Amino acid sequence: MDIEDLIEIGTIVGASGLKGELRVNITTDFPERFENPGQRWLTINNNSSPQIVELLRGRKVPGKNIYVVKLENVNDRTQAENLKGATLWVDKSDRPYLEEGEYHVADLIGMEVYNQQNGENIGVVVDVFSAAHEILEVKLHKQPLVETKPPVNLENISRISRRKKVKPKKTKAITVLIPFVAEIVPIVDIDNQKIEINPPTGLLDN
């Protein structure tokens, strides 16, 4: 199974108890992925290949975005602690039923965003997160110009510490946060990878 065929559902943050249970910080809107037993996938780090694991059971920690889960063949605290930082996944084809107006986060990432008011393609969705409601983080296609300084000849600087100081700094791309509500995001076209927004005054200012 390739990582491109999977959806991330949570990160193991530590052990729970002495019998191999794991604390998982969930990144899915479908908690049943941790409540229903069955096959899941596990990556130990960013470079490891996904491996099949069997989820035996899971329960939510009250008041927290944490589930305590039991995986097959993880039977003591030492084994559980060795999995800290690992990521749990499900097959993309394993999708819960969605009501009208609901979307999978993985489908929204990468969609182009258009302003209905002028037809402009303003940016691309790079993240989705929850607050009082879902929020789209959109990286703008039009990034502000960054004032550049004349290049520095590092060969004329002898001390390594001073070389580090004059190396150019990377600039972070400008993004805007768009409330994912029908009044502002009236159209989500999954087939054409297109979102249309009707932004109120000031929403796109940065």
Rank of each mutant, 00 (worst) to 15 (best):
Y97D: 14
V124A: 02
I12W: 09
N82S: 15
P96I: 08
V74C: 09
K142P: 01
N192P: 04
H141R: 10
R95V: 13
P37S: 11
N46T: 12
V90S: 04
I157C: 07
V128F: 01
P199A: 12
W89K: 05
L204G: 09
P199Y: 06
Q116H: 03
I3E: 11
N46R: 12
I135Y: 04
I197A: 10
N206P: 00
G63R: 06
D205S: 14
M111I: 06
A86T: 03
G58L: 04
D91I: 02
D2Y: 08
T28F: 06
N73E: 14
G14L: 06
Y103E: 12
Y67M: 14
G202P: 11
D94I: 00
P200G: 05
P186N: 08
N47R: 11
Q143K: 03
V61E: 15
N156W: 03
L145K: 12
Q39V: 15
P31E: 15
K170D: 13
I122W: 02
G17E: 11
D127Y: 02
A15P: 04
V146C: 03
V166W: 00
A15L: 00
R159Q: 12
V152T: 15
E4R: 14
T11C: 10
V185H: 07
G202S: 02
I12T: 13
I109T: 08
V113F: 01
Q39Y: 07
K70L: 01
K139N: 04
V166A: 14
N36A: 03
I135G: 02
R33G: 00
V105I: 15
V188S: 05
A173M: 04
L71N: 08
Q51H: 00
K170H: 01
Y103G: 10
K142S: 11
Q79D: 07
F180S: 05
K194N: 13
T43N: 09
K70E: 08
V138R: 04
F129K: 05
L98K: 13
K172A: 12
Y103I: 09
H141C: 02
T11Q: 14
E54D: 15
L145W: 02
F30H: 13
V138S: 09
E102W: 08
L55V: 05
P150C: 10
Y67R: 06
L56G: 03
N65V: 02
S93L: 11
L154T: 13
P179D: 07
V181W: 00
V24G: 03
E102F: 06
W41N: 02
N36F: 11
D94H: 01
I195H: 09
P151D: 07
A182F: 00
G14C: 10
L42I: 14
Y114L: 09
V185N: 09
L108K: 04
D127M: 04
K60W: 03
T28K: 01
I12A: 03
P96R: 11
F129Q: 02
E112V: 13
